[in-house]
Simulated assay, not measured.
Amino acid sequence: MTDNAVSLNQTRDWVKRFVVARDICPFARRELDRDSIHYVAVSARSFESALLALIDECRRLDDDPGIETTLLVLTQGVADFDDYLDLLGLAEALLEDQGYAGIYQLASFHPAYCFDGVDESDPANYTNRSPSPMLHLLRETSIERALVGFAHPERIPERNVRLLREMDSDRLAAGINGTEALEVRQ
């Protein structure tokens, strides 16, 4: 199995076992069940090629309404979180420059994700930690539709932080890396 295939399989497993099973994103289960999540492996050794792949995926979303969301799994080049943040900043600027602001939203995930001002050992960081660095493209209209029928969507991050802080950090790390099933500590 190639490194790309391993990364994509780990990501699919993470979406199912962590994001959906723990209800980290309450909208993900529907898309998983509908098989409308597109996964693509992209090297970020060259920021330019990674950014071109991002725009290609925006065009794919433009052309294929059956794809609800795309996870660009960055297989190389941004293992360092600061390098990843540099790429993320360029990606956000590129979406705006190419006229995709307001059409697609970019969410970010990285194995070493750490919120600004939060200790890196805080389990809250696991809301954005993933097996591989990735850029997540979401349709803005779909987000808006989903939020209309959802009571208090602003509470989702608070709920996730509370849930993850109740979990053992070692088990969280093992679950993100696919070595152990995640279970809430009693």
Results as ranks from 00 to 15, higher is better:
134 M>T: 01
166 E>P: 02
34 R>G: 10
148 V>F: 10
116 D>L: 14
62 D>A: 09
96 E>K: 13
153 P>G: 05
74 L>G: 01
16 K>D: 14
147 L>N: 10
52 L>A: 14
157 P>R: 07
62 D>N: 08
40 V>A: 13
145 R>V: 09
22 R>Q: 15
123 P>Y: 04
14 W>A: 05
49 S>M: 11
118 V>M: 12
150 F>D: 02
116 D>S: 15
174 A>W: 03
151 A>S: 15
38 H>G: 11
21 A>W: 01
83 D>C: 11
39 Y>Q: 08
101 A>C: 10
84 Y>T: 03
109 F>K: 05
65 P>C: 11
175 G>I: 06
155 R>I: 08
164 L>H: 05
52 L>I: 12
128 N>G: 09
67 I>T: 15
128 N>E: 09
29 R>T: 04
41 A>M: 05
112 A>F: 12
3 D>L: 13
170 D>F: 12
62 D>V: 02
168 D>E: 14
176 I>R: 14
29 R>I: 00
122 D>L: 07
86 D>I: 00
3 D>I: 13
127 T>Q: 11
44 A>L: 00
125 N>D: 10
79 A>W: 05
118 V>P: 09
46 S>N: 10
163 L>N: 04
78 V>T: 07
104 Y>V: 03
163 L>V: 01
49 S>C: 04
108 S>R: 00
186 Q>H: 15
128 N>K: 01
131 P>H: 03
65 P>L: 14
140 E>I: 08
126 Y>E: 02
12 R>Q: 14
145 R>W: 05
38 H>L: 13
139 R>S: 04
39 Y>R: 06
65 P>R: 14
82 D>V: 10
60 R>N: 11
57 E>V: 09
124 A>G: 13
42 V>G: 00
77 G>Q: 03
156 I>N: 06
98 Q>T: 12
167 M>R: 08
2 T>E: 14
170 D>N: 13
69 T>V: 03
109 F>P: 07
164 L>T: 05
98 Q>H: 12
36 S>I: 01
147 L>M: 14
138 L>W: 09
38 H>N: 10
57 E>G: 04
39 Y>K: 06
23 D>I: 00
132 S>F: 09
62 D>T: 03
36 S>F: 03
177 N>W: 08
21 A>Y: 06
156 I>E: 06
31 E>G: 00
25 C>D: 05
